[in-house]
């Protein structure tokens, strides 16, 4: 839920990066964190296991600048991708304003992508949201690997509603900011609609 504070003249929005385990959600956030000026970001909080797998969520606040005198702050979250952390994923979707689905382009991860996308729709539904109506972007990550599924095939399987699609290599930042920009723009456009 977008929170607008007239006293501090701030607009706060929540964006969630969703996707199967090891698809690169945390890497997206890490890249954004590493590439952003210190004054525009807060700490990157990672609630991770000892092996650096996301246990609950990663979080970073990002200030993009001002719109009509209001500071726009995006709270970026990731969810844990592994199937058995579903309860945590549901919690993190509460109050979401926009979703990025990070797909793993590797051939052997196609089923995991489909399962995770289905899980996203289900969990959004359980929170009273509809994927068809929420700001949403699809990112096809790991395009640098040799065993990737062709874009057309991935799009055919994963595209839900004509959402913006970005090819990405989150480890080197390719497509990371394009993805963020696209979802942030949709969120602000929704706000404009009322």
């Amino acid at each position: 839920m977008t929170f607008i504070n007239y006293a501090s003249r701030e607009i706060n929005c929540k964006i969630v990066y969703y996707g199967p385990g090891l698809c690169g959600k945390t890497t997206n956030l890490q890249y954004i964190y590493d590439s952003t000026a210190p004054q525009a970001k807060g700490k990157l909080i990672s609630l991770a296991t000892e092996t650096d797998r996301t246990l609950f969520f990663d979080f970073m606040p990002l200030e993009l600048g001002t719109v009509r005198g209001f500071k726009t702050r995006f709270h970026l979250y990731t969810v844990p991708g592994q199937v058995y952390y579903d309860a945590s994923r549901k919690l993190i979707l509460k109050g979401v304003d926009g979703v990025v689905f990070v797909a793993d382009s590797q051939e052997e991860r196609m089923d995991a992508n489909i399962e995770s996308l289905y899980n996203l729709e289900e969990n959004l539904g359980s929170q009273g949201y509809n994927l068809a109506e929420i700001p949403y972007v699809l990112q096809l990550n790991k395009r640098d690997l040799p065993n990737v599924t062709p874009i057309e095939e991935l799009s055919q399987e994963l595209l839900k509603k004509g959402e913006p699609v970005f090819e990405a290599v989150a480890t080197n930042g390719t497509g990371v900011f394009d993805t963020l920009k696209a979802v942030a723009k949709q969120v602000l456009t929704e706000l404009r609609k009322g």
Partner: peptide, 10 residues
């Protein structure tokens, strides 16, 4: 769609 915005007045 997402929840409606919560607006806090001054």
């Amino acid at each position: 769609m997402a929840d409606t915005p919560f607006i806090l007045q001054e």
